[in-house]
Computed example of a mutant assay.
Amino acid sequence: MSDVKIFWDPKGFELDSLGRKKYIRATDGDTPYISTSIRMLGIDTPEVHYPGNSSPVKFDAKLKELAGWIREGIAPVDEALGEYLIPRLETGEAGTLQKEQGEQARAYFEALLDRLLRKESGRRRSVYIQTADEPFDQYGRLLAYMAPSYTSDELAKLSRHERATFNYLMVESGWAASFLIYPSLPKHADLVMLQEGAKAACENRRGAWENELMLTGYEFRMAVKLYNITKKIVANRNVSSRERSGWISRFCVDMTSGEIFYPQEYYKVSPYNRIFVWPADVTDAVAKMNLKPPIDREA
């Protein structure tokens, strides 16, 4: 019988899992180095590969077909959200645009890294990483804000904008949409700067915003899920009510008004003002951020 006299297993498994990673080296007996991918917090770029390693281009015709299903009232989507999505889907090039913009976003990010991480000496600068309360996502990627690592003397000479994270700079460029998910939010000053940068990018049609029919990365993933569910409905397969609504589940908060919207109402909030909240976190978010229902719903 075990000598251990305490019991600690309230959820069955308490540790985050990183999955399979490449081993690099060890500096001593308890300090191995591994490679790991980072999912930059608070932003979302267009997809180069989705779902999985598939090309978004494969969904051009499918998303056009989805637009037809929405028009016919077959797809499980609210009429108003459907009207918002239809012009973006029926072009027959929604997937192609997604991939093209994803590749442009990657090229911009790589150029940004090359410029900001290169020292005058020619040597490469390290990066500074700040993680969220939950450090890893479901794919084992490190959730983090990433910035060039400056010395104390350098930081003293730099403004908040000049020392900004890559997360912010991608949003400011227009090649990433802000994608804040409660409770992993930046501190107030950084939140304000992100909102202002995102608004300027959107209103001035920088990067991906140049095309009025663009889908953000999260909207494209959402549309693919909606297509797959609607395809089952069209084929007369059994689809539960939970599955019908499962393609979209995050509530959306307008950070400028404090209003909270149901998942299918997210489009009512300007892209640069959105904070998403998982259903399980809604009660906590409402209390801590003093949220309220939309004004027009109270009338």
Rank of each mutant, 00 (worst) to 15 (best):
M1D: 12
S2I: 05
V4H: 14
V4D: 15
F7D: 11
W8K: 10
D9P: 00
K11Q: 10
K11A: 06
G12L: 02
D16C: 02
K21E: 08
K21M: 04
K22Y: 05
R25Q: 10
A26T: 11
D28W: 04
T31K: 15
P32K: 13
T36V: 10
T36R: 09
S37Q: 09
S37F: 09
I38D: 03
I38V: 15
I43L: 13
I43V: 13
D44G: 02
V48D: 04
H49S: 15
P51V: 09
S55I: 10
S55P: 06
P56L: 11
K58I: 10
A61H: 03
K62R: 15
K62S: 08
L66G: 07
L66H: 07
A67C: 08
W69T: 05
I70M: 13
R71S: 12
E72H: 11
E72G: 02
I74D: 13
A75I: 14
D78M: 05
A80F: 06
E93T: 06
E110T: 02
A111N: 08
L117S: 03
R118M: 13
R118C: 07
G122H: 07
G122C: 08
I129S: 09
Q130S: 15
Q130A: 14
D133W: 01
E134C: 01
E134R: 15
F136E: 01
D137R: 00
D137W: 00
Y139H: 13
G140L: 06
G140A: 08
R141F: 06
Y145D: 14
M146L: 15
A147V: 08
P148M: 14
E154D: 14
E154W: 11
L155H: 07
L155Q: 14
H161G: 14
T165W: 03
T165C: 05
F166E: 02
N167A: 03
Y168K: 11
V171E: 03
A177F: 05
I181M: 06
I181K: 10
P183C: 12
P183D: 12
S184N: 14
S184Q: 15
L185T: 06
L185I: 11
P186C: 07
P186K: 07
H188T: 05
D190Q: 06
V192Y: 05
V192S: 07
M193T: 13
M193P: 01
Q195K: 13
E196Y: 03
G197E: 02
K199I: 03
A208M: 13
A208Q: 06
W209E: 00
E212L: 06
E212M: 04
L213D: 09
L213F: 12
T216Q: 09
E219L: 12
F220V: 03
Y227L: 12
I229Q: 04
T230R: 07
K231Y: 02
I233D: 05
V234H: 12
A235P: 00
N236P: 00
R242L: 12
E243Y: 13
E243I: 08
R244S: 09
I248Y: 07
F251R: 01
D254W: 00
M255K: 05
S257D: 01
G258E: 02
G258R: 00
F261C: 03
E265W: 14
Y266L: 07
K268V: 02
K268T: 03
K268N: 08
P271I: 00
P271A: 02
A280N: 11
A280Q: 11
D284H: 08
V286C: 01
K292V: 10
P294L: 09
P294Y: 05
A299R: 15
